[in-house]
Amino acid sequence: MPLTRVALLKGKSRAYRKAILDGVYKAMREAFDVPEGDLFMLIDEYKPSNFLYGETYLGIERDDDLVIIQITANNTRTTEKKKALYAKIVELLGEDPGIKPENIFINLVEVQKENWSFGNGIAQYG
């Protein structure tokens, strides 16, 4: 049930973008109890004029390799599960495609189960 949106600057290869999606999905499967096949992910690429970020916000040094990951999911997981997810995403994206931990920004948006329809106009969880 997670819906994942990834934002980054234009110019990365198809393999790089696929590695991001694969890594985030693997992290969700391993650390966030996401079932196999629950795969709804988007990548949005931006021109530099449409992609602004705090280069040193909270003392974290970011650069133009910043990847912003927003995951919308049910509000059913513990704080420990959320922290494990963040750590696993950073670990896997550090391995492939080689993103520095400082350049991985993650935002988790939690919603009620009845806020989903996976098709046919039915609230499958509600």
Rank of each mutant, 00 (worst) to 15 (best):
G94I: 05
D38L: 15
F32R: 10
P48Y: 04
Y57M: 13
V34C: 10
S13W: 07
Q124E: 01
L108Q: 01
K26P: 11
N75G: 14
K12I: 00
L66D: 02
K81E: 14
K83P: 06
L3M: 07
M28R: 14
A31C: 05
A87D: 04
N120M: 14
D65G: 15
D65P: 12
Y25W: 03
F105M: 04
T72P: 08
A15D: 11
K88R: 12
V111A: 03
N115M: 03
K18R: 07
S13H: 05
L52T: 15
R62F: 05
Y86C: 11
A15F: 06
K18F: 07
V109G: 01
E36H: 11
A84V: 06
R77Q: 09
E110A: 04
V6M: 07
L93M: 05
A15W: 03
K82G: 12
P35T: 07
D44E: 14
I69K: 08
E36C: 08
N75F: 07
I104N: 02
D44W: 12
D63R: 11
S49G: 15
I71A: 10
I89D: 04
K81G: 09
E102W: 01
N75Q: 12
E95S: 09
L3S: 08
T72K: 10
D65L: 08
L92V: 04
T79Q: 13
G11K: 02
L8V: 04
K82A: 14
G37E: 07
R17C: 12
G121Y: 00
E114V: 00
K26L: 11
G121E: 00
P35N: 06
V67E: 13
I122Y: 01
V6G: 03
I43W: 13
W116E: 00
